[in-house]
């Protein structure tokens, strides 16, 4: 359910952006018109992302054990280790860091910094941080 919500909102935003770009590319509209429409697209994204981010689905799932179990099973299926995520995620920009190069406290600081800088999901950064702290 959560994923469907996310896809709907992202679909809205993506459609807005793609429409803007196509409009610009084919030079159908003036710059100012595009600016106005882009504004609307960004407003859509902001509202959509805020709505999703601020909506907790825990209560809903807790009431329905079938959904809760299905989600746990789904998460179990795609579960990746922190070590695997460390290799995949860090390498997207730079070589994966050696866990031994910083202590636990430093890794906490670096993880928060990188979570925001590289726009990494909470799940990924939590597991990567746990791995780095366990392996240093």
């Amino acid at each position: 359910m959560k994923i469907i919500k996310q896809i709907i909102v992202l679909g809205f935003f993506s459609a807005g952006i793609i429409y803007e770009l196509l409009s610009k590319l084919f030079k159908i509209m003036s710059v100012k018109t595009v600016q106005k429409k882009l504004s609307i697209g960004i407003v859509f994204l902001t509202i959509g992302a805020t709505t999703i981010a601020c909506t907790s689905t825990k209560g809903t799932n807790a009431d329905d054990p079938t959904i809760a179990i299905a989600e746990i099973v789904e998460e179990f299926k795609i579960e990746k280790s922190g070590a695997q995520m460390w290799g995949e995620t860090c390498n997207r920009c730079h070589l994966a860091p050696s866990p031994a190069d910083y202590n636990d406290t430093d890794w906490e600081t670096i993880s928060l910094h990188m979570r925001v800088r590289a726009n990494i999901t909470e799940n990924q950064i939590t597991k990567i941080e746990e791995f780095l702290k366990s392996a240093n």
Binding site: I3, Q6, I7, T50, I52, A53, I78, N119
Partner: peptide, 9 residues
């Protein structure tokens, strides 16, 4: 405002 979402993979 920035962030990221897991989409189940």
């Amino acid at each position: 405002l920035r962030g990221a979402f897991d989409l189940g993979g």
